[in-house]
Simulated assay, not measured.
Amino acid sequence: MGFFSLLFGTPDNKLLAETINKGAFLVDVRSPREFSSGSVKGAVNIPLDSLTQQLAKFKGKENIVVFCRSGNRSSTAKSILAQNGYPQVLDGGAWQDVNKILTNQ
Rank of each mutant, 00 (worst) to 15 (best):
M1K: 00
M1L: 03
F4W: 06
F4V: 11
F4A: 12
L6Y: 12
L6P: 05
L7Q: 05
L7E: 02
F8K: 05
P11E: 02
P11I: 06
L15N: 10
L15P: 00
L16M: 09
L16V: 05
E18G: 00
T19N: 06
I20L: 15
I20R: 00
N21V: 07
K22L: 09
G23E: 02
F25A: 04
L26T: 10
V29W: 00
V29G: 01
V29L: 01
R30Q: 07
S31G: 03
R33H: 09
R33A: 14
R33S: 12
R33E: 15
S36W: 11
G38Y: 08
V40N: 04
A43L: 06
V44C: 06
N45S: 03
I46H: 04
T52H: 05
Q53A: 13
Q53F: 13
Q54W: 03
A56Q: 10
A56E: 15
K57V: 02
K59Y: 04
G60E: 01
E62L: 10
E62Y: 07
N63T: 14
N63Q: 14
V65F: 13
V65P: 11
V66L: 03
V66D: 09
C68K: 00
R69T: 13
S70H: 00
G71N: 11
N72I: 14
S75P: 02
T76S: 12
A77P: 09
K78T: 15
I80P: 11
Q83W: 03
G85D: 02
G85E: 04
P87C: 09
Q88H: 11
V89F: 03
D91S: 12
A94P: 03
A94Q: 08
W95A: 08
Q96L: 14
D97E: 14
N99R: 14
N99D: 15
N99E: 15
K100H: 05
I101F: 07
L102P: 03
L102T: 08
N104E: 10
N104T: 14
Q105I: 14
